[in-house]
């Protein structure tokens, strides 16, 4: 399967990406595929030859990353060192499509987008970056038995002040803005908490243990489609959209008065 085949297939599988649920399903497919590849890897390795994989990671790195991060990940004036950032960091930046930057200049804001590499390529790059020095591993999420309420408390204390009670993000000063969490897959949420990408602070295992990490990710996941018992959620903007809705209602009521107070002619 070539790279462009992979991209085409993934795009086709995701459709036009309007539907959040479908996007999630897409990610589930990707992750399932990744898991399947992982399971069948020994057999594949024998077929392709064991020496194949470790060599492709460095080659990809040299072609796509080294110009900013240095030939051995030591960093340059264009980009930070990758020694010791760990697998979690490489996985987060590559899978979120934030890296590589479209324009390779310092000071660019890395935006979320389609990943530039296939799943296999990403895993090879991640392995290579992780081999440069010790750093946070990709967290192993388990959302089967979580305490959603605990997660909510942790979310409100640690996340809501930047990402909003709804996860739609918030305004920062001089650093772009805190991004919305809804399009971020669970695993990347967990990675971001551990590594603190960009202006985001990081949360170590001593501060937020793995169980708490599961809880807080589960709550952020819940916020994708929270319970809107009261009807249409007005995009969860709070009193700002409520003001707009009230404004429209006022318009309706003015129309009612225009009808009632109309001067009958003739």
């Amino acid at each position: 399967m070539t790279y462009s085949d992979a991209v085409t297939r993934r795009r086709a599988a995701r459709g036009d990406r309007r539907d959040r649920a479908r996007a999630l399903l897409g990610w589930a497919v990707v992750l399932a595929a990744a898991g399947a590849l992982l399971v069948f890897q020994p057999a594949r390795g024998q077929e392709d030859g064991d020496g194949d994989r470790p060599e492709r990671g460095p080659a990809l790195y040299q072609a796509n990353c080294a110009s900013c991060h240095g030939n051995r990940g030591e960093g340059t004036f264009r980009g930070p060192s990758l020694i010791g950032v760990g697998a979690a960091s490489a996985d987060y930046w590559l899978r979120s499509g934030r890296m590589p930057l479209p324009i390779r200049e310092p000071g660019q804001e890395a935006k979320r987008g389609e990943p530039a590499f296939s799943d296999l390529q990403i895993r090879e790059l991640v392995d290579y970056v992780a081999s440069l020095g010790d750093g946070p591993q990709i967290p192993e999420l388990d959302l089967t038995d979580v305490d959603l309420a605990k997660g909510g408390e942790l979310y409100r204390l640690n996340c809501a002040s930047c990402h909003n009670w709804d996860g739609k993000g918030g305004a920062l000063v001089n650093r772009g803005n805190a991004p919305p969490l809804h399009p971020v897959p669970d695993r990347q949420l967990a990675e971001a908490i551990r590594i603190g990408p960009g202006a985001m602070p990081q949360f170590s295992e001593r501060q937020l243990d793995d169980e708490e990490l599961n809880d807080v990710v589960a709550y952020a996941d819940y916020l994708r489609t929270p319970q809107d018992a009261g009807g249409y959620g007005l995009a969860h903007w709070g009193p700002s959209t409520e003001t707009v809705a009230g404004f429209v209602a006022m318009l309706v009521l003015v129309l009612v008065t225009a009808w009632l107070g109309e001067r009958r002619r003739g």
Binding site: S161, G170, V173, R175, P201, Q202
Partner: peptide, 21 residues
């Protein structure tokens, strides 16, 4: 308000109520 918003790059604390930084 609690100055809850911490930007690790630039080391800024920000209050989400009125954006005092």
């Amino acid at each position: 308000c609690p100055v809850g918003l911490y930007q690790d790059v630039g080391y800024l604390l920000l209050c989400p109520c009125h954006q005092a930084t």
